[in-house]
Design a protein around this nucleic acid. Structure first.
Lengths: 228, 228
DNA sequence: GAGCGCTTCGTTGTGCACATCATTGCCTGA
DNA sequence: TCAGGCAATGATGTGCACAACGAAGCGCTC
């Protein structure tokens, strides 16, 4: 069963969401590195539409600060300088802690299952590191953690800032393969620690652990990878 | 001098910003109350363009949660139920305090001048209350306070949440004219208190005062205006 | 008379042709 | 040989005509 073609739904809204999610994911996973030019025509062709609906997606992404369009030149994936990145990280620290204080909700059965799967994937990644799978796992774990607060505006803000910063951090990680091993190891420990806190039911502790890891990952990035 | 027509700048980006700012302001000042349908054609004609550039603005506003487009029906100014509004307020409380802790900057001469002007306007408003001028003053004062932090991402987030919530609060205020007097009075005191804290140079205290007032204004709104 | 369906109308969504803009590289003249 | 301008190129921005969609009103049928 389930033999139907993927793109059954062709309602305007669904298609918009699909394109938006897909392109955002590519930017976040560094398929489109910062500075990359996105061709409206090529993307439109890929998604089987004209430029008009695609441009709508790009306008949204521009509002989210992920791309920037320049008349007559092109649409580029944004990059950020270290100073603004530092500001965003400082804000993310506080917001991460807030997820444990504002409308926290314990995981339900489905979310537990998801967390177990994420833990398995992280352990598998330690045995066999891979940049892209690491990036995807990082995104998935973050989104899972976001389910721990019922505060919808907070979730939106955290998600927005996450997508703005993580790709920059990933860029640093990917720059030197040697660090990837360390980062995967640290990440695996973060997952285990947070799950341990969740099992006790201490959501605030889980949030504090996440906050600590965000802080440390930024410090590691700021100090820079070994240029050996 | 300065006899030139207003709309000299016609670069695409400038025009987009102008339209975006103008429509957002109208939504925030309740010129377009929640539920109002925005006519793409009428707005496009007003701004002297076709629907295409205007739609770009609407897409941005939809991303900010201020409007929602429905295919074949119309584009409507969003409303929010009390539960989500409460969540947003809880978040705004924390963020307001953060503006006093993350990258605080003391006002420069120009900002002091602006604050003095705002104080004068608020006092004038007590003597002669007016809903629309109150709304505009509220917006202006909020934006001025935002200048007290150099953390750009924090400013963006605060601004975004402010525009989402304040119009709902204003709607409650405008519903009964009797409360307008009280609200103006409270607001005037808030301005004075915050300016007092700023004169001492205690930015954190100023942020805490703002936080307290956000909290109290939500409580007043939640309890509801007198339906007499 | 009531209920169901069709038709009409208005609105947003899409596709395409063209305008506008910035870059690039060549060509010309000193 | 070098410098400056200018035209060609390719990108995003705009305008318009049409498609898709949803709601409301009208009429037909039971």
């Amino acid at each position: 069963m389930n033999v139907e073609p993927i793109d059954v739904t062709q309602s305007a809204r669904e298609r918009f969401e699909r394109m938006h999610h897909e392109i955002r994911n590519r930017i976040c996973l560094l398929d489109y590195a910062p500075g990359t030019r996105l061709s409206e025509e090529a993307l439109a062709a890929e998604f089987g539409t004209s430029r008009t609906p695609l441009r709508r997606v790009l306008v949204r992404l521009e509002g989210e600060g992920l791309v920037q369009s320049v008349h007559g030149v092109g649409t580029f994936v944004t990059d950020v300088e270290i100073e603004e990145l530092a500001q965003t990280y400082r804000l993310r620290l506080e917001l991460a802690e807030l997820t444990g204080k504002l409308d926290p909700v314990a995981p339900d059965a489905a979310l537990w299952e998801h967390f177990r799967d994420l833990a398995d994937r992280s352990h598998a990644l330690v045995a066999d590191p891979d940049p892209r799978r690491f990036a995807q796992l990082n995104v998935d774990f973050f989104l899972a953690l976001l389910c721990l607060t019922a505060n919808e505006p907070l979730r939106e803000v955290c998600e927005r800032l996450y997508f703005q910063t993580t790709r920059i951090w990933l860029k640093s990680v990917f720059a030197s393969t040697i660090d990837l091993i360390d980062e995967v190891d640290v990440f695996c420990r973060e997952v285990d620690d947070i799950l341990r806190a969740l099992r006790i039911g201490d959501l605030h502790a889980a949030a504090l652990i996440q906050r600590a890891h965000i802080s440390m990952s930024f410090e590691r990035m700021r100090k820079g990878p070994d240029k050996s």
